[in-house]
């Protein structure tokens, strides 16, 4: 079984098999992964065009409206997408999806007995700017129960998908909220190593809180990936 954690960059990520999160048992590879140094060096990602971004794609408080405003606590989520050297990654795609303020996903498979919000889709996207910064307006999602174990509840979270410069910088992660008591009981959050787990918890950001409108949260995202200079020299 592939229980032994890999070395290298994967040692900062959750193990592939983590039995406390039951779905990993049948879906994690059993055999060791193959390490081929340099395999991802030339695998650049897609190039994104500003023109493709819709005007409300980054504003989840607007992009699902039908006849009114979505319910819940408005918030601003912003941060910088950067490489391991802390250098911002411009013009990369950040995708976001989440439950509504009641803890219900619009996804047809979600059967949680909590109301849908007719004015909230829960999906957005944006491109990072020249410094690697992104910003979303959204609604704070609710916690929700799931079937992993008795009385299991997911902490409030946003799902993020980020590209970066190279195929090895591809990341899907979740943003959590500071002080959430559910984090301690959540095997998905706890699956990440102690060294990096806290990086998924956003900081409350009073400076970016908009008076009389929305609370600010800062969530920086650091991606794996080859040092950029390797490419600049080619």
């Amino acid at each position: 079984m592939n229980k032994k954690k890999a070395g290298g960059i994967e040692s900062f990520h959750p193990p592939r098999l983590y039995p406390d999160y039951k779905s990993t048992v049948l879906r994690a590879p059993h055999r060791p992964l193959i390490l081929v140094p340099g395999i991802f060096d030339d695998a650049y990602g897609p190039v994104f065009g500003e023109s493709e971004v819709g005007p409300d794609d980054h504003d989840l408080t607007k992009n699902g409206r039908r006849d009114g405003e979505p319910l819940g606590e408005r918030m601003i989520v912003h941060g910088k997408v950067m490489d391991l050297n802390g250098k911002g990654i411009p013009n990369t795609l950040v995708e976001l999806w989440q439950a509504n303020s009641a803890g219900r996903y619009i996804h047809k498979v979600d059967q949680h007995d909590a109301p849908l919000d007719p004015n909230f889709l829960g999906a957005g996207r944006c491109l990072t700017d020249q410094e690697g910064c992104y910003l979303f307006y959204t609604i704070k999602p609710g916690a929700y129960p799931w079937g992993n174990h008795y009385n299991a509840w997911r902490p409030q979270h946003l799902h993020f998908s980020v590209f970066g410069r190279n195929i090895s910088s591809r990341l899907v992660t979740q943003m959590y909220f500071p002080g959430d008591p559910l984090l301690l009981y959540d095997p998905i959050y706890e699956s990440a190593p102690e060294t990096t787990r806290h990086l998924m918890v956003a900081d409350f950001d009073l400076d970016r809180t908009e008076p009389m409108f929305a609370l600010g949260y800062k969530f920086d995202i650091v991606l794996n990936g080859r040092n950029e200079s390797r490419f600049e020299n080619r």
Partner: peptide
């Protein structure tokens, strides 16, 4: 820096 750890895409992507 340390990388932001990965999490599952989940069932509702």
């Amino acid at each position: 820096k340390l990388p932001t750890p990965s999490q599952t895409v989940g069932p509702f992507f």
